[in-house]
Amino acid sequence: MTLDEETPFIFYTGNPNRISVPLNPAKESMRYQLQFDSTVAAYDTLTFFYRPVLHFVSNACGYTYYYTVDSVHFTTNGLDSVVYEQRSITNEAGKSNIRFYFFP
């Protein structure tokens, strides 16, 4: 769930091992509250610091934004560590950018 938006944006994922985190191009950081297990009332706060990069797709599709992730700050209630796999975020589906490790 987003914490900084006027309307909190809640997203779920069908695949428990993978989540897609939308970023707002109008901002340079976003905070998310993450509950890694719906049966456990433990939450971590993730703050993504990033730079939006305008990218031309085509005349028909116009522009979109790519991002470069500078850092991710997080609490450690259940989250152990974060590994950056690919800081450059493009529109390539299926590519993993950041990996989260939780306490067992």
Binding site: T2, E5, F9, N24, P25, L54, G62, Y63, Y65
Partner: peptide, 14 residues
């Protein structure tokens, strides 16, 4: 003049 819609509502224009 471009406009990029976002899922957060509104759009980024430039």
């Amino acid at each position: 003049h471009y406009k990029v819609s976002t899922i957060f509502g509104g759009s980024a224009e430039g």
